[in-house]
Every structure is written in C-alpha cells, then in structure tokens.
C-alpha cells in the first residue's frame, strides 16, 4: 500500500507532529490574568505568580526560540560552569565512546572464551547473573569513593553498563555457531585460532553487533543520569543546571538533542551490524 505512495508515511509523521505541537500549544496557553498584587510586590516575583498562579510549562514557541539560540551558538564558553550545548554534548559523547570502547575490549574476548568453553561459561554464570541487573548508577558512590576522580567514575559507570549486553551476546553468538561449520573446519584440520577468526567470528558477528547496539543505547541513557549526579561537564550537567534554574524550555531543548544523538549512535551501529550480516 505504502509501496506505491512513499510520501504517505512522512506525511503521517508530520500530521502527528502538528497534532502534538497543537495540543502542547493549547495546553500551555497562558491566560493573561489581572495582576492581583500591588506593583511593588509584582516586580519582585515572576509574571505567573503575580497573577496568583504558578509559572507554567513553556509553550512550543518558547522552546523553539531556545532551541534556535542553542543551534546558532553551540560552542560558546563563558566560564567553567557555562559552556555551549555543543561542548556539553561533546563531553558526553567522548565519555560514552571511551567507556563503551573499553567495555568492548573486555567483553568481546571474554565473551569468546565463555562461548567456546561451556566450563568457563558455567563457572562465570553466577557472577554475570548477579552483576548484570545492577543499575549502573548504584555503582556511582562506590566508584567515586574508590577511584577518587569524578570523570573516571562516570566513564567507569558507562563501562560497567555497556559490558553485560556485549558479553552475553558475544557468548551466545559464539556458542550458537552451527556445528556443521565447526565440523567442516575440524575435518579440514584448520587450527583453533584460525577457526576462531575465520569461522566463529564472522558467524557470530551479527549477534555481537546486536549486543553492541544494545550497549551503546544503554550507555547513552546512563550518561545523562551519571552526569546529573557528578556535575561538571556534559549534557547531564546541562540538564541539571537548567533544572536548578527551573528553565523547562532549556531542558526540553536538551532532551531533543539527547534524543537526536542517541538516534545517530544507534543508527551508526545498526549500519555496522548490517555490514556484517550474511545469508545462510
């Protein structure tokens, strides 16, 4: 159906967006009330409080204006605690990539060993089962206390949360390589190392890539929370700082950026995943 009308889906997306923004606009429309307090008092409080209400959610217009400010000037630096959103996102991305990269370096070889040897798998299984479900943020106080460096602690938290999906997926992928292929390799007297690299790795690659894709998604989720806790730099700190100022328009802008970057990270790993897929 959509095959002969390819514009239908994007059109529907736009309709959804318009309906959402419209509802948002209606929901946040501030009725211009009478100022019910004397002018001297009114000057000291926010506009909404002066009319007897609470300051409201910003409308779509306010958010777009803020968004425009961030897009046009993303890399300003007005001191240690006030940097542009581009710089903050850069810090977060760097942390995620370092933590994720380190986790991949550990998880993929370890997953290989676990997948190839049922004995190691059984021995390590209880540890993995216990450590896997721990919220990465629960590690934060321990990390801060032992590592004594907030930046490395944040990276450690990313490391620990990206480790498990990659480890488990690698092990699963390696363990479920088709017996026939391994048998063929054995009949041809291929060495174990060559079997690992030329038979198992390509066979397990799609599963490993799926694990990486899950990991990077989790890492991006966690970095925001970790940076809100630790502060200093990063998009999480930016959200926290604007929360401090109850600046909802800024927070919504940051949320949009977080979503955008998350999508880019996910898409790039999905693309890598497609590159290693094979047809049986």
């Amino acid at each position: 159906m959509s095959g002969n009308r390819p514009w239908l889906a994007p059109l529907l997306s736009l309709v959804f967006l318009a309906v959402f923004v419209g509802l948002w606009h209606l929901g946040t429309r501030t009725s211009v009330g009478e100022v019910i307090v004397d002018p001297e008092y009114a000057a000291l409080i926010g506009a909404a409080a002066a009319t007897g209400g609470q300051s409201a959610m910003p409308g779509p217009g306010d958010v777009v204006a803020k968004l425009w400010e961030h897009v046009t000037d993303p890399f300003y630096d007005r001191g240690t605690n006030d940097k542009g959103i581009g710089i903050q996102l850069g810090h977060s991305i760097a942390r995620v990539l370092i933590g994720f990269g380190l986790a991949a370096l550990v998880a993929v070889p370890l997953g290989f060993v676990i997948g190839m040897s049922p004995l190691v798998y059984k021995a390590l299984d209880p540890f993995i089962q216990i450590l896997k479900p721990i919220s990465p943020l629960a590690w934060m106080p321990l990390a801060l206390y032992t590592i004594k460096d907030s930046n490395i602690s944040a990276i450690f938290v990313i490391f620990i949360c990206s480790l498990w999906p990659m480890l488990i997926n690698t092990a699963f992928g390696v363990a479920s390589v088709r017996r026939d292929w391994l048998n063929v390799a054995r009949t041809l007297e291929v060495s174990r190392l060559r079997t690992a690299f030329q038979v198992i790795l390509p066979a397990a690659a799609p599963t490993i890539m799926t694990g990486m894709r899950i990991s990077v998604g989790i890492a991006w989720l966690v970095i925001v929370a970790a940076e809100m806790l630790v502060g200093g730099t990063g998009i999480g700190y930016f959200v926290w700082n604007e929360w401090n100022n109850l600046s909802i328009a800024n927070i919504i802008s940051a949320i949009l950026f977080i979503g955008l970057i998350g999508m880019v990270l996910d898409n790039s790993l999905a693309r890598l995943g497609r590159a290693v897929t094979y047809k049986e």
Binding site: T80, N81, P141, L144, S150, L229, W240
Partner: peptide, 14 residues
C-alpha cells in the same frame, strides 16, 4: 576555578 557541584555528598567526596 570555581566549579559548580551537584550536591553535598558529591562535594564532600570530590
């Protein structure tokens, strides 16, 4: 360099 910090426990640990 004056660095803004998220909370008292964090400032203590840092």
């Amino acid at each position: 360099e004056v660095v803004k910090t998220a909370g008292w426990a964090v400032i203590r640990d840092k």
